[in-house]
Simulated assay, not measured.
Amino acid sequence: MPRFTQKLPKYRKHRASGQAVVTLNGVDHYLGRHGTKASRLQYDRLVAEWLASGRAVAPSSAPSHAALTIVELSALYWRFAQSYYRKDGRSTRVTPGIKAALRYLKDWYGREPAAEFGPVRLKALRARMVQDGHSRRYVNDHVARIKRMFKWGAGEELIPESTYRALALVEGLKKGRTEARETAPVLPIDDAAVTATLPSMPEVVADMVRLQRLTGMRPAEVCLLRPCDLDRTGDVWLYRPASHKTEHHDRARVVFLGQRSQAIVLRYLARDPAAYCFSPSDSEAKRRAAAHAARVTPTAYGNRPGTNRKRRPRRSAGDCYSTASYRRAIHRACDKAKVPRWSPNRLRHAAATEIRAKFGLEAAQVILGHAGADVTQVYAERDLAKGAEVARRVG
């Protein structure tokens, strides 16, 4: 197998001409007389430009504005997006949307010059998305992703700046002024539906649901809860997630846990401080233990515990729930309880609605973590006091 390396291309001597040379993406670049300071500076400049482009395009061999096709621009942007839109070592949910938008773009205009893609073609592509039955918000998001790619291309000097400026003039679809369908708003989940679903959930998932309903956490914040992230010095515990949605905006996130929330979390703290509190492997172990306790066949007969398991299963329970696995667990419980499916985001909406009705809009913003990044230290302290007071009264 080939050995991959991250080393820089070498500064070499071309024996026939006596010049220095460097090879970038299979293209030789001659730098002047070998060993001179000028050739070294030329080498440094070319390699720096090549690295700045993500090792994708050699500087002097980059396609001209007229020659670069949309397929080529999309390939370069996709390579950039995969490395840029990452969090905690994994791709974010942004990348699937980018891939879907680029698929639309390449299907119709893939072989066309990227510099010639203008507002009329973008509107035609948008109309196709509407005809395919996509919602107004979905279409606007895709159009924004396509504009963002052309903005990146202009910033990398791959296409003229005027191409992006022209596309930026295309406004998004307006509600009531387009044939694109509208999506239903995310409404708070009725507590009666939650109560009816809880008995059908695994114990761990049920506790996650109860905790999220009390605190208004995001689903990802519930999944990532660890003992080391909890400050238990006061009567109201403070949970500061190690990773959260708005951290790239330099915003702090604090979740307040009152007495009822603490009672739920307390059962999951007897573990390694860096281990996740709500673990699928723990949930699976509890399910197997419950099944074994309900066993009717004597252990001397039939399969003994553990003998009918695969040695190398294709899938096994992990150490941490993802937002997707958390949502699927809730959906399975809804199907089992014969309740219309609901998703964990609706728990956050329900908590926000209740807190706003009882304590006002500012309190809801504090609890949900919607404060701006430029607040002063005094305002932050007032927010903490208000959040603690809400947690004491709500539980």
Rank of each mutant, 00 (worst) to 15 (best):
8 L>S: 15
9 P>F: 10
11 Y>L: 01
11 Y>W: 11
13 K>R: 14
14 H>V: 01
20 A>Y: 06
22 V>H: 09
24 L>Q: 04
27 V>S: 05
28 D>M: 10
29 H>P: 00
29 H>I: 05
40 R>D: 03
43 Y>F: 07
47 V>T: 08
48 A>F: 12
49 E>A: 14
52 A>R: 14
68 L>M: 08
69 T>P: 12
83 S>W: 05
89 G>K: 06
89 G>Y: 08
90 R>P: 00
96 P>L: 15
98 I>H: 02
99 K>I: 13
100 A>N: 11
105 L>Q: 09
107 D>W: 09
112 E>T: 04
114 A>K: 01
115 A>D: 05
120 V>C: 07
122 L>R: 03
126 R>I: 08
126 R>T: 02
136 R>I: 13
137 R>G: 01
138 Y>D: 05
139 V>M: 13
140 N>R: 01
146 I>H: 08
146 I>A: 08
151 K>Q: 14
154 A>N: 11
157 E>V: 15
158 L>H: 03
158 L>C: 11
161 E>F: 06
162 S>H: 04
165 R>M: 11
180 A>T: 00
180 A>H: 02
182 E>F: 07
183 T>V: 09
185 P>A: 02
189 I>K: 03
193 A>S: 14
194 V>F: 02
195 T>H: 02
195 T>S: 04
199 P>K: 00
200 S>L: 09
202 P>S: 12
202 P>F: 13
202 P>I: 08
203 E>M: 11
204 V>K: 05
206 A>V: 12
207 D>Y: 00
214 L>F: 09
216 G>T: 00
221 E>C: 03
222 V>N: 01
223 C>M: 02
225 L>R: 03
230 L>H: 02
231 D>R: 07
232 R>G: 06
235 D>M: 01
237 W>E: 06
239 Y>Q: 03
239 Y>H: 08
245 K>G: 11
245 K>T: 07
252 A>M: 10
254 V>P: 05
258 G>Q: 04
261 S>C: 04
261 S>W: 07
262 Q>W: 01
262 Q>L: 01
274 A>L: 11
275 A>T: 09
283 S>P: 06
289 A>I: 04
291 A>Q: 15
291 A>H: 11
298 P>I: 12
303 N>D: 15
306 G>F: 07
308 N>H: 15
312 R>P: 00
312 R>A: 06
314 R>C: 07
317 A>H: 11
317 A>P: 02
318 G>M: 11
320 C>Y: 07
322 S>N: 04
325 S>T: 01
326 Y>F: 12
332 R>M: 10
333 A>M: 07
340 P>L: 10
342 W>F: 14
342 W>P: 01
346 R>P: 00
349 H>P: 00
357 A>S: 13
357 A>K: 03
360 G>H: 06
364 A>L: 13
366 V>H: 05
371 A>C: 11
381 E>P: 12
383 D>C: 04
385 A>N: 12
387 G>V: 00
